[in-house]
């Protein structure tokens, strides 16, 4: 719960879920985006995103697969928000989407990956970075 006096620290932070009028607010409902970090929503079906179980604060890797080749396009990105597909700012027209923090170059790579092939989001919270970035290795 957010008490009187704690609100000032939350002003300007980004809301991580849609909140109905009258709902108690929690600090977990907010995330601070720095001025140097970009946020990008990745539209993906829940079955390609840990069954829809991702939550703000999770770390994810983004994989692209096409023509029998899979590669990592983003590793260890923080999940900022998860659109549940029911509408609102992130859900759009009923589409599930996961918003991640990334830099400008990574945003370009993800945008390019979105334009072709299939994307999968893999929860990597607490995991070591992958040692193999492309499969098959000689692709």
């Amino acid at each position: 719960m957010v008490r009187t006096g704690e609100l000032d620290g939350l002003i300007g932070m980004v809301v991580t879920r849609s909140i109905s009028s009258g709902t108690l607010l929690s600090e977990r409902d907010f995330v601070m985006l720095s001025s140097t970090v970009r946020a990008m929503s990745i539209p993906v079906d829940p079955e390609h995103a840990v069954g829809g179980a991702l939550r703000p604060g999770d770390r994810v890797d983004v994989l692209q697969s096409a023509d029998g080749i899979a590669r990592y396009v983003l590793v260890g990105a923080e999940v900022l928000m998860v659109g549940d597909g029911t509408g609102g700012a992130l859900g759009g027209a009923g589409r599930y989407a996961v918003t991640v923090a990334l830099d400008a170059e990574s945003a370009l790579e993800v945008a390019a990956a979105l334009s072709e092939g299939t994307l999968d989001l893999v929860r990597s919270t607490g995991s070591a970075p992958p040692s193999v970035l492309v499969y098959p290795p000689d692709a």
Partner: peptide, 27 residues
């Protein structure tokens, strides 16, 4: 009794929090 924050209006995910989006209620 303490006062806790509740949403004064419907707030969409992705919005930046502003003071007038919040009111306090005693619990």
């Amino acid at each position: 009794t303490v006062s806790v924050a509740v949403a004064a209006e419907d707030i969409s995910a992705g919005a930046r929090l502003e003071a007038d989006m919040v009111r306090f209620t005693p619990v």
